[in-house]
Write a protein that binds this DNA or RNA. Structure first.
Lengths: 201, 201, 201, 201
DNA sequence: CTATAAACGAGACGGTACGTCTAGTCTTATC
DNA sequence: GATAAGACTAGACGTACCGTCTCGTTTATAG
């Protein structure tokens, strides 16, 4: 309470057991597996707990909803599988990004997670907000940087602003994935040609 | 009523009361209202029955699931609000169709139904099948006719096939609606210009 | 709408399926069995539902708590096993009643129900109220009648009022049952002799 | 322990490897208070720990169950409030003991503890055993001594053996406390008169 | 003019999952 | 080594809907 008290740093009453990393990973994997194997309908908190060998309370302690569990896996997976190109500001890198995105949505099990969250966001405003804040907005920021970089480098000349351009490029890919259609190589090429170099042709 | 009628259906196993049209409409409106007012999460069969003043069994008797209720309303509404142009095979009519589509998704309460069904289709294969068979496929057939008509008339010259072209046009609109973004007039114009008259400019 | 309709009595808006008697009995028996076999600690609503082959909601629909289930069985059983003598206003019938009571508490499985409810009443005011209103008070009314009848007939001459007399007679029996002690024949005899015929000896 | 020890830890006489008496008392008082204030239903280990400002583990380390906590307080309180008379082997001292007992059960907050434990003993065999071994049996031994002392002194002449006599005296008192009834002075007097001096009148 | 049979409202039923609570155990870091 | 803090597994709590199944009533045709 005297000088000694003043010297002591803001009290760190930290103690107690720390979070169990194994439990955290078990939950993430269980959620992922259940979604891929049995669909979103089978993705209940009880089922996740059962499959992960974890108590329900452990899930509720760390995640406010099953949607946040999926978001955790999605953020990690999408960062690995479909990083936004930041180094080479070329039209080709944009094309490559879109092809990777298409492959992710149609072939990668983790792509199902994005589609499921995009779907759930239509049913639940909280999901919509979380999906935007934690996944879509950060990615969009990097996508904008990718486009403006390439534009500044003279590689592309989009008619629309960066946001609308990205939506025009991604929209068809996402929509076909949502409707269960494949995404042919020509579609991506045409989108890039038509929207990024409208006059350069 | 006459001898002819009696002859045409000699064994009428049918008897008793016929379907109550008032109950049918009450269910459709209750489902629509609940979706718009409280979201898909509040759209339970019990809530629909409660709001419609109808017994649950009456719903289960006529609809296999709540999704089919929504489909019934969607098919009727979309036929009225966003008919596929069939008379004038011009680029302008395509543009008008896309603008109507964008307005439907972002402004019309009935547009929420389409987004909700598209979402639910990600969670449930039965919904996906119904949505395609009863809504998306018939509309796509008319959209294809619209595009081929305009192409034959020399009004447009799409690079892609009619299906991919429609997805490239609709995808951005749907995607922005799904992510809660508005759909600016310039986006539709650019899509039409870039994808339907790539060389005609 | 005619005079006939007006004449018809106020319509009985009865509809819906009636209560399932089999489910009701299954619940009562399951609760009883669980209490006797595994004790009050194992008497959870889930366990009752499981053992009765009944949905939890069915229990919650008809009983506000598991205590009321036990009360239902207790009221029925105690009416059968330890009826309060009403016909013969003799000291002997009182003695017989107390012996039956002692046997009920120590030998009859249903006696465990009374002890459990008396115990639970100490933990929960709602139980205390229900136990009094539905079981103890009605029985006490009949016990009072028994005592006053015998007193009027000159068979007994209790010093205390009927309530205190009954408590003085039953208290030792209940207390020994609560503490797991047997109830010897001499105890009942001495209580009757000492409290009902203090001067008659 | 001496001045040297004090010097070695100038500011921290507290903590170390011995049992923390402050924690022990905090737990006992918290349990007592919770029982009196919110009833047995609110008496959870978590609530005790919370109210006592003590870790759950500290409770589990020293007490096998919350029942033992209550027993600790009960033994201490009952020894103080209702000691069994050992000095004067008179009928009057027995009467005084019973009156004290009645007052303890109906007026003293600590009396609630005995009723709660007697109740819990019906639900849980471990509680029953502990209650007997640590509380009821030792007290009963002293009560027996009280009765035999008075009998030998010619002050009383009970018909029944000492155990049954004590149960016949205490039973009505306990039963009325359990059922929420008051214990009138006349009841105790009549019990003493009727059971201890059946022929001496 | 009945008699039948379908559709209706009401709602009980066996279930599944929800999100919360407490039990009792185990771990970490502090004193 | 005892403590405060608190994460962990386990499982019951009471609620909301699910989809199925009677009930008894209503009503439009069939006989």
């Amino acid at each position: 309470m005297s000088a000694a008290a003043t010297t002591s740093q803001p009290r760190r009453p930290r103690s107690g057991n720390r979070r169990d990393e194994a439990a955290r990973l078990a939950v993430l994997h269980a959620a992922d597996d259940l979604l891929v194997e049995h669909g979103f309908g089978a993705l209940t908190v009880e089922a996740i707990a059962r499959r992960a060998g974890v108590a329900k309370q452990t899930i509720y302690r760390w995640w406010p909803s099953k949607v946040e569990i999926l978001l955790d896996t999605l953020i990690e997976d999408s960062a690995k599988r479909i990083p936004v190109p930041a180094d080479e500001p070329t039209a080709e890198s944009v094309r490559g990004y879109l092809r990777g995105f298409a492959r992710f949505l149609t072939r990668d099990p983790a792509g199902k997670v994005l589609l499921a969250l995009l779907a759930e966001a239509q049913h639940d405003p909280d999901t919509a907000r979380s999906l935007h804040e934690r996944c879509l907005a950060p990615r969009r920021a990097r996508e904008r940087a990718m486009l403006t970089g390439a534009t500044d480098a003279g590689e592309i000349a989009p008619t629309l602003g960066p946001d609308a351009t990205m939506d025009a490029l991604l929209g068809p890919i996402v929509y076909r994935a949502l409707t269960g259609a494949s995404i042919p190589r020509g579609l991506v090429d045409t989108l890039v040609d038509a929207l990024l170099r409208p006059r350069a042709n």
